[in-house]
Design a protein around this nucleic acid. Structure first.
Lengths: 347, 347
DNA sequence: AACGATTGTGCAATCCTTTGCAGGCACACT
DNA sequence: AGTGTGCCTGCAAAGGATTGCACAATCGTT
């Protein structure tokens, strides 16, 4: 690890007997500089492998070309897809992405924000934790003139552009599909009442039932708090053993649906014949289980790309910037767990 | 987004009628500064919410407190676990992590390295792509005096510390377990011949057979190139339909094992009774499939932590630094797919 | 011949913090 | 009173790139 002293503009200037400013301008082909000089400087720089000192440039320009990205959980198929999209998009514009996670804890989120703010990112992409309400730590970015974009899990209390999935529409489509497949008594295992995405999905679920004139039983709506497999399992048990058992279950997320599937298999209920199951998020697991789990694809990659592009557009001061909420459309991925009318149960 | 001009040391100095240097020192409780002055400065700074200009500090100190992290694939359970560990560890020491992915392509890796080098990370954690051989782009970091740590997928041509999993031992333990379970004809679906991890696992496999005096048939070793589910499926078919079919298959990774399981189910071979299956990496899917897939846990989180800690130790100039290869031990996670002697097939 | 326009280059300030060194001041001791 | 010793504070340079402005040189025009 021999630390070569890096070549600076001054070195080049001395070597070529011209001034630092001329070198600087020559390297960016400034029109004031003579062709000949430009050629000479560039050749020299090339030959000696000159790389501008990024730290100095950043300092001067008051820009880092880094953007922050905070998600509740990194080890999570959906979020890693989003990150992937954001990174790929940022890379195209020469930005790097600083990634951090909040573990869905406010405290961790605050720390992550502080470190990022201190280390001077140019802007922030964030999907807030379940515990985040006021978001003073996020406002701190805005106060410093650093743009923030919220995505997926958002708070309306923060006045920033947002990129979200049209949860309502996704749920509506999923439930409509179940109805199309002949299911008549559709339950919903939903997420927490305070979480916006969960509410939107619940609304979509209800609207679909209404629009098609189907029965709605409040007992068919179960509220998850942890949103894990076990809850799916437990609620499936509840539902199946109730007075008015449903014939299909629409779940807030695939993990919950997995628990449902597990219980149904245990008591040998046939899927999709006797009971339909629909998930949300289209995790990897949805294609692995047997029968395949129908799910709503949220296009995480696209969400990451969109959010990053929005942020970068702002940073580059293109005035096309829109302080608005972008809703990405979802797509249904139909697999065996909900496909009663065609013979694809093993897809 | 009103860009408040940020408070500088000069502002404070003017306000308090002392010099910039005194303010600077007072803020870090330098022993040269009088208690009274320190109190006054800190109070003022606190009240007016002074935050040092990170860009200026970085420039001055020639340090960014950012470290780069490049993986072949971000949307991948193992790697996201590693990233998670690295980020959590870095956060503790006040470092941020810049994440990028190579998509297992040399070209992308080179670009990622360049952007990171340009944006001045203090050091790099990298798991190289399958295509990387020489690694000039990685040497560029070392040439600039920036430490590099390789992890998981490494190249011995690059003289850097490395954090890897003891693949040999993991494979050895897995195969030994299969032997303990009474399997006698154990096949191995392995990874590419040029990839070190794959070779180590293959060695461990072979050594376990030798040590227990079991038959070894070269036809039982199949070489994956893409390392996906389909290959697992296809090779399982090959193996099962060969002259000398095995009674257990040890797979290079869980995804391949999944394909194997799929084929076995299709032809109604009973797992684990008639055939044992063992994976590697302990992905989420291993616990989801039925029967559960036995696998080798690589402790990705720990690997990320270890690599990050190593790098940061170096950066902080603690001379405890060791330019060496750290091998993390693996653990077997035994599930239904290999458990013939106990009645846990549904675990 | 003198002046203006044009082209090419350099000077010097700026961004903000850190830090080696110098110096002022007060007190104590000879 | 003079010298020495600490203690506290300030000066100024450094770090590398950028950029407004000034200036020098060249050429063309009247």
């Amino acid at each position: 690890m021999t630390e070569k002293r890096k070549l600076t503009l001054l070195d080049i200037a001395n070597e070529l007997n011209i001034s630092v400013s001329t070198v600087s301008r020559a390297l960016k082909s400034h029109p004031d500089i003579a062709e000949e000089t430009i050629r000479m400087v560039k050749e020299f720089a090339e030959k000696h492998n000159y790389v501008p000192n990024a730290l100095a440039v950043n300092f001067r320009k008051n820009k880092t070309y880094n953007i922050g990205l905070i998600v509740p959980e990194l080890v999570h198929h959906f979020f890693s897809t989003v990150i992937s999209g954001a990174i790929d998009c940022a890379k195209k514009s020469g930005y790097n992405v600083l990634v951090s996670q909040s573990n869905d804890k406010l405290e961790d989120e605050v720390v992550a924000c502080k470190t990022m703010l201190a280390s001077s990112v140019d802007g922030l992409l964030i999907s807030i934790s379940n515990e985040t309400v006021e978001g003073e730590h996020i406002k701190a970015f805005i106060d410093e003139g650093k743009p923030v974009i919220q995505f997926d899990k958002i708070s309306d209390l923060l006045d920033t552009p947002k990129v979200i999935v049209d949860d309502f529409e996704g749920a509506y489509k999923a439930v409509s599909h179940l109805i199309d497949q002949g299911y008549k008594k559709i339950a919903h295992i939903r997420g927490r009442l305070e979480v916006k995405n969960a509410n939107e999905r619940a609304k979509g679920y209800k609207k679909a039932l209404e629009d098609r004139g189907l029965e709605f039983d409040p007992d068919w709506v179960k509220v998850c708090t942890l949103i894990n497999e076990q809850e799916g399992y437990d609620f499936a048990k509840d539902l199946l053993n109730s007075k008015n058992p449903p014939d299909a279950i629409f779940c807030i997320t695939d993990l919950v649906a997995l628990g449902v599937l597990k219980y149904l298999k245990e008591i040998s209920v046939q899927i999709p014949k006797e009971m339909g199951v629909f998930g949300f998020s289209n995790w990897k697991l949805a294609e692995i289980v047997n029968p395949g789990l129908s799910s709503v694809d949220q296009h995480g990659y696209q969400m990451g790309e969109t959010a990053a592009k929005l942020l970068i557009t702002f940073l580059e001061n293109k005035n096309e910037f829109i302080n608005d909420t972008l809703e990405l459309k979802t797509d249904l991925v139909i697999r065996g767990s909900s496909l009663r009318f065609e013979n694809h149960a093993n897809q």
